[in-house]
Amino acid sequence: MKSASDFPTINAKIPDGLKEDGSKYRVLLVDDSIFVKKQLQQMLLSQDYEVVDTAADGEEAVAKYKQHYPNIDLVTMDITMPKMDGLTALEQIIEFDRSAKVVMISALGKEELVKKALLLGARNFIIKPLDRVKVLERLASVVKR
């Protein structure tokens, strides 16, 4: 009897987190909730992304982006956070690196907030609660563009 390994490559899906050369997309994960961090981390790791670092507020996010630059492919950014909010952090990251790929993740989906984030340079906007399939789809569409 044939097993799955007899048909190795045709339909084998390459995990979203891998680049064409086989290396991993590197993600900076920004959220002040350890629950959301854990949830996102599990989703990302399941698709072979590498979480290079995490930050719990906007200030830390900007500092860590600069610290790891240019070895970051994607930032997931919460909005409501202490010290500095996610929109301000987004603005500062884009100011530092115009090609930064930042995806906002928030429980608030008010139209003016989404518009503002996209105007400031966010590549996408994901509204919580996080649906694993949708999150991975959105993130993949951003990193692979």
């Binding site: 909730s33 350890i34 959301v36 429980a107 008010k110 509204i127 919580k128 609660p129």
Partner: peptide, 16 residues
Amino acid sequence: ATLTELGNMITGNAIT
């Protein structure tokens, strides 16, 4: 953190 996030999502979606 999980419970406050639950509160956050419920109220965030509602005010949206």
